[in-house]
Amino acid sequence: MTTQTQILRSKARKRAKTADKVATVVIIVFALSIVAILLGLIGFIMFRGLGHISWHFLTSNPQTIREGGGIGPPLFNSLYLLVLTMIITIPLGLGGGIYMSEYAKPGKITSFIRLVVEVLSSFPSIVIGLFGLLVFVNTFELGFSLLAGALALTIFNLPLMVRITEQAFAGVPREQKEAGLALGLSKWKIITSIMLPVAIPSLVTGTILAAGRVFGEAAALLFTSGMTTPPLNFSDWNPLHPRSPLNPLRPAETLATHIWKVNSEGLAPDAIQIAAGASAVLVIMVLLFNLFARWGGRTLYRYMTASKRMN
C-alpha cells in the first residue's frame, strides 16, 4: 500500500517534471520566434534600404518623375510633426491622466470618461484622418497643414497618453502620498514634487510608445497634413514665413506618407529603392528616438530622485 502510493507519487512527480520541461521549451521557442521575426523584419528592411541611404538621399528634395529623389523635407517633417504633436499631447495627456488618477471620484462619470478614452484608443486611424479633414482642415480652415496633422495625431495618441499617465500615477506607492500629506504638503505639491519623479519611468515608456505611433502613422495624416510639401527655404527659420520649414500652417508629407505615396503612385524609375531607403531611415529614426528618450528619461529620473539607476 505504502509503496504503491510512493510509486504513484513518484510517477506524478515525473509527469509534472516532464510537463514543466515541455512548457519551458514551448515558451522559449515562442519567445525566440518573436525575436527572430523582429530581427528578420529589421534585417530585411535594412538589407533592402541601407544601400540606398546617402547624405544626398537624406537631404535632397523628392522627385516626381526623374531619378535620384531624396527624402530631406519628409524627414524634417516627420521630426517636426513629432515635436508639434508632443507639445500638444503631453500636457493634455498628463493633465487628463493625473485628473483620472488623483482627482476623479470613483463613480458613473469617471467610469464613463474611462470608457470614452478606451473607445477612442481603438479608433481606426483612417477614421481619425477623415475626422481631421472635416473638422481641422475644413471647418477650422487650417487647410492641409502640420497643425491639422498634429491635432489629428493628438486625438490618436491622447487616449494612450492618458491611460499611461493614470497608470503611472496609480502605481506610485500610497505611502509616498501619505508621507507628503503628513508633512503638510498641498495635493498639488505632492503630485508635482513627490509623485511625478516616481512616475517618470512609466511616463517615458508611454511617451516613447506614443511617439513611435507618430513616426509610423500615415492614414491619419493623408487628409490632414497632406501629401505634398511646398518648396522650403531651409535658411528661413521664422515660423510665420510661408516658406519656412517651421511654419505650422504649411502642408507636409511625412516619411510614412511619402513611403505610401511613392509605393502607390510613384512615377520615378527608382521609386522602389526610394521607398526601401525611406523605410530603413524610418526604422532607424524610431530606434534612435527610443534610445534618446530612454537616456533622457533616465537622466531626468536620476536628477529628480538622486538615484543611480532607473528601476
Binding site: P173, E175, Q176, E178, A179, G180, I194, P197, V198, M304
Partner: peptide, 9 residues
Amino acid sequence: WQRPNPFYK
C-alpha cells in the same frame, strides 16, 4: 508609519 517611506530623493 510601519513601513519606512522616504521620498525618492
